[in-house]
Design a protein around this nucleic acid. Sequence first.
DNA 1: CCTTGTGAAAAACTTCACAGCC
DNA 2: GGCTGTGAAGTTTTTCACAAGG
Lengths: 204, 204
Amino acid sequence: MRYRKIPDETVRRLPQYLRAVSFVHKQGCKYVSSQELAERLHMKSPQIRKDLSYFGAFGVKGTGYPVETLLGRIREILKLNTPQKAALIGAGRLGKALASYPGFRLYGFDIVEVFDRSPRKIGRKIGGVEIKDVAHLGDLGKRGIRLALLAVPAGAAQEVAERLVEAGVRGILNLAPCYLKLPKRIKVVTIDIAMELGILPYYV
Amino acid sequence: MRYRKIPDETVRRLPQYLRAVSFVHKQGCKYVSSQELAERLHMKSPQIRKDLSYFGAFGVKGTGYPVETLLGRIREILKLNTPQKAALIGAGRLGKALASYPGFRLYGFDIVEVFDRSPRKIGRKIGGVEIKDVAHLGDLGKRGIRLALLAVPAGAAQEVAERLVEAGVRGILNLAPCYLKLPKRIKVVTIDIAMELGILPYYV
DNA sequence: CCTTGTGAAAAACTTCACAGCC
DNA sequence: GGCTGTGAAGTTTTTCACAAGG
């Protein structure tokens, strides 16, 4: 077999596992048990065992999972084992924060292009990358850039997203508070910080 | 009955409904159908009808849901009908972006306090609010501040979060790439942007 | 026609419990 | 003793199908 079909919910948790296992790895541990991970992630251990079982039995009974193998497998499934180039659209306050965010490295992401609309910003540098005119995206796909971080105002998001798709982008992390209507083959993940905050009062 | 028990997944979708219905409201529509919302949100219409049915039958058959009533009900369930005060911890690049983010208003959130550790920042203003020393949180709970946005480095997040809980905060939106170990009564929502990006290559 | 509201069916996911192995 | 891996059981969530109403 290649791998069994991996449930959506499991895929959604893999990046969390990656982060937690990386942490354990940095501490120098060779093995990690499902209990340990469960505690760290506020989950139950059978859940983790089941998730990991979807991509092959490589845990060692009585000991746990070999940390390096585990990292490799998760990266392999998520296709993070080769560095992923990404473009950032929007060099406003949020764009600046993203451009200098160190956390992307853990997942092998590299922001290699930054675009903005404002002539005042074009030509300047953020995060070591020169800001270019968003009117000239060029063929991002051909340059190996299939991911984009969209940090533009909600009013411009749909239009820019369509142009990104034309430019060969296949996946978009949308930080504007709106939905994007794009062809089904394009994967969109939207993060609306205010919306996430919106559920807190219910539980408080 | 008060309301039937609302499933977790439904609660999670309410902020999305709120955003979408607000949009329709701004366009001046009096009614919106489950189909319309479904299209806008990339969902199926029975899902939306079921979700809305959990808090009372107020849709008009043949027409749809009255937009204003719908907004009111969702706000009521989410406890967003009264303005919610929030504190922002961390005035770095991300903190600055959050302080000036206009999207919070839709949900009735108001950032009334900003804290940071750096003496260089303390005393300055962002988003119209003076930055105070994080060492002196005071009793946030007594001042009606039960929510906090945590935008500090991962290394400091756990410690600051514990102090927030002592200060009377009940819900935390954690933007640091780490898990927080806090009493169960505290609701934590973590957003790790890099992690969300992490699932894109799998689908691309 | 058009819609909502909902029980029932189906699907998806989580948890349990324990065999098997170190 | 410890831990993994997994079928089966249990739970939650989604989808369907259609009665009932405008």
